[in-house]
Write a protein that binds this DNA or RNA. Structure first.
Length: 827
RNA sequence: GCCCGGGUGGCGGAACUGGUAGACGCAAGGGACUUAAAAUCCCUCGGGUGUUUCACCUGUGCGGGUUCGAUUCCCGCCCCGGGCACCA
């Protein structure tokens, strides 16, 4: 065999060659084939910010391995790619660099598409879409109109989260610690009109169907559960004394209703004015409300506000015991949750307890810990459940049964009802910006809000046809605004809000199934074949926002008749961040690694290999420049091994029966099949490519060592071993494997190659190592025939010289034999 | 405060269902080849002790427990990361 120790694999020429071939032949185009198993693998599509970063490299490498692997397993794989192309950075770049958001975006897309192609990713580029394309967002406008018809889209005036620096409204989930999720500037409340999607109509389903998502990380489901925040309880009316008004409260603790000693209203509560109008309390209450509202705006999100309140001069009646309790306005009561009014039970709620202490209000205990009698004075609220006391007919019941009994009682008497509330609120989608999908409605003074007729869609963003077109926010573009009313023909004004960009990403995965469909948003035949996404891959930072919106949209599209599925993503893989020197890569920290430089220096295969090898996908990946050298070394090692063993590929290919193989051949054959099993299991169970790669490395190390030591395993075994290596590595380093495959005389490319088949007989060891313990400590090892029986094994262990030293003639109390593993002698 | 993750060599990480802790890779040290370098190959590599081709002790955040045997299971803590945070 020749010496190839100094030859190097020419990644540059090889990668260019195969990429050209893929671009010309488009082997990764997918077409629905009814009756054939499909597999839809999708990575979260990128925002075209300019260039790809290491997070993308990692995300797409993982997705590509899965796509190629599933193809080798015989699936009809769809693996599309596109662009989440609307958004504020385009507008900011436009202002800064004087280019139009559209041309900035499309330039970036062109550049980044090249970068992705240079990574050798097996996308079906025929399905590529960009959400800023009118051919995409026109269908979004259609969906919007359908939602409007069904009351799933509506307009209202509310207090919204306003980001002054982005000059737009944010949804609640887009406010992180009181700041904008995008620009990190503080968010302020502001009252204005806006469009909403009625996600709360699906709250129940979104919550309960989480249980069907067996392929999702528990962590993500917990986050969604908390975000939806369903609570069951009692909604109950308290009559206001001396006024024909009721205050409705919501509580999850109806069992404490006999402990109510006062009532708290949110400062925004609509009844306050009426309660105090014309009374001596009016002045004080109104100024309190005003001060509190201002304070609330100023308050930073992490600080705990001191509890404050003011008496309204009014009392209301607890319908359960007829007691009159004073009504307060309190700064800690939220208008946004429940009814904006809470019954205060200081003995069993810590906030009420603190409030009562401050204003010396009575505290009445009505819940006793199950195993304890009444104690002394409470130092803090007792919030656990227990046994009811001082609760009229309910005294003596335990909390759980009392809750139901009290709800029943309220329902029977007509002053209360069982109710479920949610923390989740409707999704505010209005953005007061330019670079987004226009909301397709018209405001007419006579007719009100009129939908744009479907035949007039798309409502196209103005100014995109020229690099000099205006990209001012739409409310500043008079030419766009002025129109006529589709209903009465009179002069009217277009809606100037654009949609939140999360709307586009809420349904793009479905559009990939039919990107050219021209008569409706989705082609039912195609979506029924391809959806749901079998494997979705992306960063955990989208655990709530994007993934919840997409689940909501899927249900809306289902109810509109466009889809037949409930859940969009069957399996979800949330990959960790790429970090360097212990911190997330960022320009400000100066620790960014540019994928371009790496691909230039090492080639795409090496970069892919290292990003898969350095950590399992769900964990953060510490970028290590020297580790990349290691990945490169490994590929070169395989390259040299293949060169050295080239002759094996020209001889006969049929494997002899293992009994006919020489010792080295049998050992290599065994290791080959053990590796097939290890790699297959690693991919199938949890996509742990790091252990898959290390298994292949072990096999390569063994083969190389055998060759170097002149052991000459049977040639067909060497050939099968190397072919296996190439097949196992192909999903991770496709250019390299294709080249080696061709070099070793295969006339068909690997695109249709079949994943190696594991042979348990071939993998079976005929001699195994058994450890021998004395009192649980390893004292010796035995090489024995794999089929040895327990008695013989025990005898061999006791007879072992090292073991005899420890037993020293003593009679063992007990001997434990574990098949194929160990013997433990207990003295 | 509450709810999830996670803590293993100098580093990234392995370890099936309770059964050899540290696979694989990186770094480091030593050596071979070479005029030299690169490339490549070989050896050592958790800590400690000793009579040092070998043997023993110790070791998976800390303290207990269950077990013949615990990185793995149970109880109680500590630290790190993430999410939520007056949600009645």
């Amino acid at each position: 065999m020749e010496n190839h120790s100094s030859e190097k694999y020419d990644f540059k020429a090889v990668e260019a060659k195969w990429q050209q071939q893929w671009a010309a032949a488009r082997p990764y185009r997918a077409a629905a084939e009814p009756g054939r198993r499909k597999y839809y693998v999708l990575e979260m599509f990128p925002y075209p910010s300019g260039r790809i970063h290491m997070g993308h490299v990692r995300n797409y490498s993982i997705g590509d391995v899965i796509a190629r692997y599933k193809r080798m397993r015989g699936f009809n794989v769809m693996h599309p790619m596109g662009w989440d192309a609307f958004g504020l950075p385009a507008e900011n770049a436009a202002l800064k660099q004087g280019v139009h958001p559209a041309s900035w975006t499309y330039d970036n897309i062109a550049y980044m598409r090249n970068q992705l192609q240079a990574m050798g990713l097996s996308y079906d580029w025929d399905r590529e879409l960009a959400t800023c394309d009118p051919d995409y967002y026109r269908w979004e406008q259609v969906i919007f109109l359908r939602m409007l018809e069904r009351g799933l889209a509506y307009r209202k005036e509310t207090t919204v989260n306003w980001c002054e620096s982005c000059r737009t409204v944010l949804a609640r989930e887009q406010v992180i610690d009181g700041s904008c999720w995008r620009c990190d500037q503080p968010v302020v409340p502001r009252t204005m009109h806006g469009w909403f999607f009625k996600i709360t109509a699906y709250a129940d389903e979104l919550l309960s169907d989480l249980d069907t998502l067996t392929g999702w990380p528990e962590k993500v489901m917990t986050m969604q559960r908390n975000w939806i925040g369903r609570s069951n309880g009692l909604s109950c009316d308290f009559q206001v004394e001396g006024l024909d008004r009721k205050i409705t409260i919501f509580t999850t603790r109806p069992d404490t209703v006999f402990g109510v000693t006062f009532m708290s209203l949110a400062p925004e509560h609509p009844l306050i004015d009426e309660l105090v109008a014309g009374t001596e309390y009016e002045q004080e209450v109104k100024s309190f409300v005003q001060r509190t509202l201002i304070e609330k705006q100023r308050k930073s999100y992490d600080e705990d506000l001191e509890k404050n309140g003011v008496f309204t001069g009014r009392y209301c009646i607890n319908p359960f015991n007829g007691e009159r309790v004073p009504v307060f306005v309190a700064n800690f009561v939220l208008m946004e949750y429940g009814t904006g009014a809470v019954m205060a039970v200081p003995a069993h709620d810590q906030r009420d307890f603190e409030f009562a202490a401050k204003y010396t209000l009575p505290v009445r205990e009505v819940i006793r810990p199950a195993n304890r009698d009444a104690g002394g004075e409470l130092a803090q609220a007792y919030v656990e459940s227990g046994v009811l006391d001082n609760s009229g007919p309910f005294s003596g019941m335990d909390s759980e049964s009392a809750k139901q009994a009290i709800i029943d009682h309220a329902e029977h008497n007509g002053f209360g009802r069982s109710e479920t509330t949610y923390r989740l609120r409707d999704w505010g989608i209005s953005r007061q910006r330019y670079w987004g999908a226009p909301i397709p409605v018209i405001h007419c003074d006579r007719c009100g809000i009129v939908p744009v007729p479907e035949s007039d869609l798309p409502v196209v963003l103005p100014g995109t046809d020229s690099p000099y077109g205006s990209h001012a926010p739409l409310h500043l573009q008079e030419e766009f605004i002025a129109t006529s009313c589709p209903a009465c023909g009179g002069p009217a004004r277009r809606e100037t809000d654009t949609m939140d960009t999360f709307v586009e990403s809420s349904w793009y995965f479905a559009r990939y199934a039919c990107p050219d469909h021209r008569t409706s948003p989705l082609d039912l035949e195609q979506t029924t074949y391809w959806l749901p996404v079998d494997q979705y891959i992306g960063g955990v930072e989208h655990a709530i926002l994007h993934l919840l919106y997409a689940r909501f949209f899927t249900r809306v599209l289902r109810d509109l008749g466009y889809l037949k599925i409930n859940e969009p993503f069957l399996n979800l893989l949330t990959q960790g961040m790429v970090i360097k020197d212990g911190a997330k890569m960022s320009k400000s920290k100066g620790n960014v690694v540019d994928p371009n430089d790496l691909i230039e220096r090492y080639g795409a295969d090496t970069v892919r290999l290292f990003s898969l090898f350095a950590a399992p996908p769900e964990r953060d990946l510490e970028w290590n420049a020297q580790g990349v050298d290691g990945a490169s070394r490994f590929l070169n090692k395989v390259f040299r091994l293949v060169l050295t063993c080239r002759a094996c590929f020209s001889g006969p290919g049929n494997l002899p029966d293992p009994a006919e193989m020489n010792d080295a051949g049998r050992a290599l054959h065994r290791k080959t099949h053990q590796t097939i099993k290890k790699v297959t299991d690693s991919i199938e169970s949890n996509f742990h490519f790091n252990t898959a790669i290390s298994a292949v490395m072990e096999l390569v190390n063994l083969a190389a060592a055998m060759i170097a030591e002149g052991k000459e395993p049977d040639r067909p075994v060497v050939r099968a071993c190397l072919e296996t290596v190439l097949l196992l590595l192909y999903p991770m380093v496709p250019h390299f494997c294709e080249e080696m495959w061709e070099m070793t005389g295969h006339d068909r490319t690997m695109e249709r190659a079949i994943w190696p088949v594991f042979d348990p007989d071939g993998a079976r060891e005929d001699e195994i190592t058994i450890i021998v313990q004395v009192n649980g400590k390893v004292r010796s090892r035995l090489n024995v025939a794999a089929g040895i029986d327990d008695a013989a094994l025990e005898a061999r262990a006791l007879d072992d010289g090292k073991i005899r030293k420890f037993t020293a003639g003593r009679q063992p109390k007990k001997i434990i034999v574990v098949q194929r593993k160990l013997v433990n002698i207990v003295l």
